[in-house]
Amino acid sequence: MQSIFTWYAKWIREGKLKVNSDWNKNLKIKFTVQDPCNIIRKSFGDACAQDLRFVVKSCVGEENFVDMAPNMSNNYCCGGGGGFLQSGYTEERLAYGQKKLDQIVATGADYCIAPCHNCHSQIHELAEHAPKHWGTVHLWTIICLSLGVLCRNERTYLHDDLKEVNIPEWDETEFLV
């Protein structure tokens, strides 16, 4: 049992995954990342969290990555875990998520990369309650964006600022509504 974060990092280091952050050089769109509890603290630890950061920085540019505080194995759960999303206790789930919301707001990031689907759903919902509605994206979306192979119909979770950035020249797909 291994985490795909570690493999993404390995493939980038080996030159197999030719990600490039030039698309964000002038845009300077800021990203933060959620360390999923089950993957980082509960399974693979800080080495995997470092791999995750290496991947994100390689894709968005080191200067455009802003970490949450605290982070890695010490990060807060988003409030979507442990079945909370399906438990029906919505009010309590959002109250729990306030800590995560404050953490993300403090980074000033335009996007939060949430590489676990539970975190993604919760953090996406938390954004609706934030003063600035950050975007919540899967990690693979940002990898493919930085590879120049992300089509328009694969950009559901990107905001307008990234709808037309680094589009493959052959892309004839349309945005999904």
Partner: peptide, 9 residues
């Protein structure tokens, strides 16, 4: 019991 996400922090 259902508000703790067993996140282990």
């Amino acid at each position: 019991a259902w508000f703790c996400s067993m996140c282990t922090r």
